[in-house]
Design a protein around this nucleic acid. Structure first.
Length: 502
RNA sequence: GUCUCCUUCGUCUAGUGGUUAGGACACCGGGUUUUCAUCCCGGCAACAGGGGUUCGACUCCCCUAGGAGAUGCCA
C-alpha cells in the first residue's frame, strides 16, 4: 500500500509545539514509508480564522524544513487543499446523507441548546444534544423552512449497539453508540462543514491511508467510523499520538510558557534542536541514542516506537539540545545565525561594516560555548562593539579587597596591557602571575577588576581573548576610566572622614 | 455526571517472565579553569496500590486508585 498521510491544522492561531509534533510524526512516517505527506488547511471555523495564522503555518513549516508533497501553494491531484475552497463538496455529501436518512436538519437555536446543556449540568445528567429535531414530521420541517429558520445538519448516531476502530498503537477502541456524542453537527448554519464532516470527506477523497493525530481525538474516533459507514466508505488506519503536556500534567498551553514555534525561533532556538527534541517527546529509538538529524529521522522513524502515555514538555531539555546543536554548527554557519540578532539589537550596523565583520569572525570561537540561544550573542558581545554605560563599583572590587588595593592591582594590570598584543597568551599569563605576586594579590583578584573594566561585567569571555578583540587602545581607555572612578571614590571617602572630624 | 485512554527515577525514556531495572535532562558534589560557560568524573532518584497466573513477575490477567482527554454550529 502506498502510504498517504496528512497534517491538517486549523489556522486559528500560531503553530504550536503540539501541532508541530503531529506534523513531524506524519512527515517522518510518510518519508520512512516512501509515502506522501499532504498538507491540508482546515479553515472551516470562519470566526477564529486569521490570515496571520495561515502565514505562520507556512513560515513555520518552511523554517523547520518540513516540505509537503501535496497541498496549498504546491498543488496536487487531489486539490484544492484548502477546505474553504471545497464547500460545495461538503454540502453535497451532507445533503446526500439527509436523503439517505442518515442525517437530518436541526432547527434548534443556540439559545435552546445552551439551556438544554445548563439543565443537564445542573441535574448531573449526561451532557449532549437532546435530539429534539431528529424525528420531526414532514409538516414540522416544512413549517420551520417556511418560517425561514436556519438549520444545521446532524448525523444520526444509532441508539443501540457499539462501534469500534483499531488503533495501531492502542489496539481496539470500542464505544457504545449511546455514549457517542448525540448527533453531532456536520454542516453548520453558515454553510461551512464542521471538522468531523470535512475531515472524513477529505480524507476519503484524498485517499489518506493513515491518520496520525493527537489522542484528544480518540473520543471522536467511533463517531468518525460511523460517518464512514454512513457514506459506505472504508475508513483509514488510525494511530492516536500521545499528547504533549505542561509541567502540571495539563495539556500544554500558553500558561506553561512559550508554545508557539515562532516564539522559540525569535528567542534563538535552532530548528534542528526543536525537531530533535519535539520528536523525542513520545518517541524513542533505543536506550541510548537521542541525537537525530531530520534526515536520519526520515529513515528511522517508526510507529511501533511511539509511546502510549502523554509526555511533559521539558523546556530545560530543549535548551540543552539547543546548546548542543549550537556547538555542532560550523563557525561560518554560526556567524550567519548570529548576525541578524546583532543587527536587531542594534549592536552592529546595517549594513554591517568590514570592521564589525572582522570582530565577529574573530570572536566566535570565544562565544560558541557560552551560547544557550543564538539571541544570547548580543549581551555577550556588546562590550566589543559598544561603549560601556555604567560601571558598578561593587563589581570592580574583588572579595576581601578595598578601593586602594584594587587600584594598585588594576594599575599593575594596566602596565601589562601595554605591549600585550606582541606577546603570546602563555607569556602574558606568566607576566600577570608575576605581577600579581609583586602586588601581593591573587591572580584572580587582579584579573577580575580588569575583566569588569574592559567588559563591564563580572561574567565575560576569557580576558586575554577579549583584550585582543577589543584592542589595546580601547582597553587602556576603559582601564583608565575605571581607575579614575576608583580614585574619585577614595577621595570622596576621605572628604567624608574630614567632614566628620576624624 | 458520563465515556475513553494512560500509569518505570522530578522530567523524557530503555526494558516484551529470570537485569545490581540502563541512558539522557534537571538537581547535588568534585575536577579542569583568570570569571562565566564548555568539558570530564561521581552522586541522588523509579516499576501507583492490591489481588491472581507462574518455580519466578516491571513485564500476562483482574480490581482499586490517580492522571488526562472528550462530552460545542472549535478544531
Amino acid at each position: 500500500m502506498d502510504v498517504r498521510v496528512r497534517y491538517a491544522p486549523s489556522p486559528t492561531g500560531l503553530q504550536h509545539i503540539g501541532g508541530v509534533r503531529t506534523a513531524l510524526f506524519n512527515y517522518f512516517f510518510a518519508r520512512s514509508m516512501g509515502g506522501k505527506f499532504i498538507l491540508r488547511v482546515e479553515d472551516t471555523d470562519r470566526e477564529r480564522f486569521s490570515e496571520e495564522s495561515l502565514k505562520d503555518l507556512y513560515d513555520t513549516l518552511e523554517w523547520l524544513g518540513i516540505d509537503w508533497d501535496e497541498g496549498p501553494v504546491k498543488g496536487g491531484a487531489y486539490g484544492p487543499y484548502i477546505q474553504s475552497e471545497r464547500t460545495e463538496l461538503y454540502t453535497k455529501y451532507a445533503n446526500q446523507l439527509v436523503e439517505d436518512g442518515k442525517a437530518y436538519h436541526c432547527y434548534c437555536s443556540s439559545e435552546r441548546l445552551d439551556k438544554v446543556r445548563e439543565v443537564q449540568k445542573k441535574e448531573k445528567k449526561n451532557y449532549g444534544y437532546d435530539r429534539h429535531c431528529r424525528d420531526l414530521s414532514i409538516e414540522e420541517r416544512d413549517k420551520n423552512e417556511k418560517d425561514g429558520l436556519k438549520s444545521v445538519i446532524r448525523l444520526k448516531i444509532p441508539l443501540e449497539g457499539k462501534t469500534s476502530f483499531d488503533d495501531l498503537l492502542l489496539g481496539t477502541v470500542t464505544r457504545k453508540n449511546k455514549d457517542i456524542s448525540p448527533d453531532p453537527v456536520l454542516l453548520k448554519s453558515d454553510g461551512f462543514p464542521t471538522y468531523h464532516l470535512a475531515n472524513v470527506v477529505d480524507d476519503h477523497l484524498m485517499e489518506i491511508t493513515h491518520i496520525l493525530r493527537a489522542q484528544e481525538w480518540i473520543p471522536s474516533g467511533a463517531m468518525h467510523i460511523l460517518l464512514y459507514k454512513a457514506f459506505g466508505w472504508e475508513p483509514p488506519l488510525y494511530c492516536h499520538l500521545p499528547m504533549v503536556m505542561g509541567k502540571d500534567g495539563q495539556k500544554l498551553s500558553k500558561r506553561h510558557g512559550s508554545t508557539s514555534v515562532v516564539d522559540f525561533r525569535k528567542r534563538g532556538y535552532l530548528p534542528e534542536a526543536i525537531i530533535n527534541y519535539v520528536t523525542m517527546v513520545g518517541w524513542a529509538y533505543d536506550d541510548s541514542r537521542e541525537f537525530f538529524t531530520k534526515e536520519e529521522l526520515e529513515k528511522l522513524f517508526s510507529l511501533e516506537k511511539i509511546s502510549k502515555s502523554p509526555g511533559v514538555f521539558d523546556y530545560k531539555k530543549l535548551e540543552w539540545f539547543n546548546g548542543q546543536y549550537i556547538r555542532k554548527k560550523s563557525e561560518a554557519d554560526l556567524i550567519e545565525e548570529v548576525i541578524p540578532y546583532l543587527k536587531k539589537d542594534g549592536i552592529i550596523s546595517e549594513p554591517i561594516t568590514e570592521k564589525e565583520m572582522l570582530i565577529i569572525k574573530n570572536m566566535m570561537s570565544l562565544m560558541t560555548e557560552r551560547l544557550h540561544f543564538i539571541s544570547d550573542i548580543s549581551e555577550l558581545s556588546r562590550f566589543l562593539f559598544k561603549d560601556i554605560g555604567n560601571y558598578t563599583l561593587t563589581d570592580i572590587i574583588p572579595k576581601k579587597m578595598d578601593f586602594k588595593g584594587t587600584i594598585i592591582a588594576l594599575e599593575g594590570a594596566r602596565e601589562l596591557v601595554e605591549g600585550f598584543e606582541s606577546r603570546t597568551d602563555e607569556e602574558n599569563e606568566e607576566l600577570f602571575r608575576k605581577k600579581a605576586e609583586e602586588v601581593k594579590v591573587k591572580l584572580g583578584s587582579m584579573l577580575m577588576p580588569l575583566r569588569v573594566a574592559i567588559s563591564g561585567s563580572k561574567v565575560s569571555p576569557p580576558i586575554f581573548g577579549s583584550l585582543r578583540l577589543l584592542g589595546v587602545d580601547k582597553a587602556l581607555e576603559r582601564i583608565d576610566h575605571v581607575i579614575g572612578l576608583l580614585k574619585e571614590a577614595v577621595k570622596n571617602e576621605n572628604d567624608k572622614e574630614v567632614e566628620s572630624g576624624q
